[in-house]
Design a binder for these strands. Structure first.
Length: 420
RNA sequence: GUGGGUGUAGCUCAGUUGGUUAGAGCGCCGGAUUGUGGAUCCGGAGGUCGCGGGUUCGAAACCCGUCAUCCACCCCA
């Protein structure tokens, strides 16, 4: 048996309604906030991701699905959506379009990680990118969209955490301070964090080990070494969130794993999600368009993990128009089967959804299937009905039955269907 | 990449200190109802016990390997 690839899941018909519900509400909210859908390719040249995400990040160093095209160029299955969106923005000179460029996207992303609760190798994100506005209100707008859509989907126990990373220069001046402090207390750090002092000291702030947390509580804070501009910006963002009543908590430990973020960063986490508890996260990335050889362009965005939302979503929260067929055709016998075939087609062509199970050969088996499929009506057509020229329409709830002329089925059936 | 848990029927799981024919519930199919669904009763089908090797008179069980899967580390959505 050929099996699916590790960390790559099938979404069977039983679970797609839950996904459609999530996608539909995300679309609705994106629309309300003035974001428009963009569809970008699933693979790009490798250097796009290396340059945007950061060559020394885990994603680029060891998690990308990279392969050679036939002419030898290195291509990569997208590990996230921002890089491709920015590339498209630059390539099509969208900065020249006079209206704000605010995009949203859906789609699969690929990262070669060990699968775990809430983490797959092919996973799906909904993301948003807002280009061209260096105004705190656009950060607020994006955060509000994230919060409202997650709330509307019906998730409980969410926390929005915010931090401000300042500009790269702020971090450059902060990092040595932090490293000096950490080295003084190196022996009290977990072995992981001892290693991280050199590799990625900011990550130590986010360590879950209690000893490390206690220690970093006393550490110098990035917020204290921010210059005037980021402080003012941060204050404006928070003031705006207060104004529109988006609940948040400050988390000076929040550092993002992708290199391109600056100023505002944020993350929404959920309980009951296991170790991978981030549902959505994002931030401002004012330098990225320029790093990818575009014009200087401020930008903010976020991405949410769709399978993580799906995990959290209670069945009761799913509101979707169930796509159940209305009429079941119970056709049996030699003549009945043929008459049933044309009845099916007649109804479908007239816009009535109709189904049958061609394996069933007895009326009993047909009715059982009609029941399972949740059809409200069954049209019974056996050889007897064919000779009479009438089918029997059975209301599966009231059990009342009517004779209908097979020759004019759609017009005869229509009023009976709408009554119930 | 590292660590731990779990692999028995379509699904969820039992299976005694190793013992002869591997079970249950649910589901499925059929009958009671020769053409009327859901409930009930009766009957039936369905298993290379993940795979390979080893120990043993005898292995679903013990040992080794391997694969799959889940969880955690790392990292991230």
């Amino acid at each position: 048996m050929i099996k699916g690839i590790k960390g790559v899941k099938d979404l069977l018909p039983e679970e797609t309604p839950r996904w459609r519900f999530i996608e539909e509400t995300a679309r609705r909210w994106a629309d309300r906030y003035g974001f428009h859908e963009i569809r970008i390719p699933i693979f790009e040249v490798t250097t796009l991701f290396a340059r945007s995400i950061g060559a020394s990040t885990d994603i680029v160093e060891k998690e990308m699905y990279t392969f050679q095209d036939r002419d030898g160029t290195s291509l990569t299955l997208r590990p996230e959506g921002t890089a491709g969106t920015v590339r498209a923005y630059i390539e099509h000179n969208r900065g020249a379009v006079p209206v704000p460029q605010k995009y949203f996207y859906f789609g699969p992303m690929f990262r070669h990680e060990r699968p775990q609760a809430g983490r797959l190798r092919q996973f799906h994100q909904f993301g948003v990118e807002s280009f061209g506005m260096a105004d705190p209100r656009s950060d607020i707008e994006v955060i509000a969209l994230l919060w409202r859509l997650l709330s509307d989907v019906g998730l409980q126990g969410l926390t929005l955490e915010i931090n401000n990373l300042g500009y790269p220069a702020d971090r450059d001046s902060y990092r040595p301070q932090l490293v000096t402090y950490l080295k003084q207390h190196e022996s009290h750090l977990c072995s992981n964090c001892q290693r991280r002092i050199e590799m990625n000291p900011l990550r130590i702030l986010d360590c879950k080990v209690p000893e490390c947390r206690a220690l970093t509580e006393q550490a110098p804070r990035l917020a204290d070494s921010l210059s005037e501009a980021p402080r003012a910006y941060s204050a404006a963002v928070l003031r705006g969130l207060d104004l529109i009543r988006i609940p948040y908590s400050l988390n000076h430990r929040l550092v993002r794993g992708l290199d391109y973020y600056n100023l505002t960063t944020f993350e929404v986490t959920a309980m009951n999600l296991g170790a991978q508890n981030a549902v959505g996260a994002g931030g401002r990335y004012d330098g990225l368009v320029e790093t990818l050889s575009g014009p200087p362009t401020p930008a903010v965005g976020f991405a949410v993990g769709l399978e993580r939302i799906a995990m959290l979503l209670a069945d009761s929260a799913i509101r979707t128009s169930a796509a159940k067929a209305v009429v079941y055709i119970a056709a049996f016998g030699e003549q009945g089967s043929l008459a049933g075939l044309s009845a099916l087609e007649d109804l479908r062509v007239c816009g009535i959804s109709a189904v049958s199970d061609f394996r069933s050969s007895t009326l009993k088996a047909h009715l059982r299937q009609a029941d399972r499929l949740g059809c409200s009506f069954t049209l019974i057509i056996g050889d007897d009905e064919v000779t009479k020229g009438t089918g029997i329409l059975r209301n599966m709830v009231t059990k009342s039955q009517y004779d209908l002329p097979l020759a004019a089925l759609p017009t005869a059936i229509q009023p009976l269907l709408t009554i119930s």
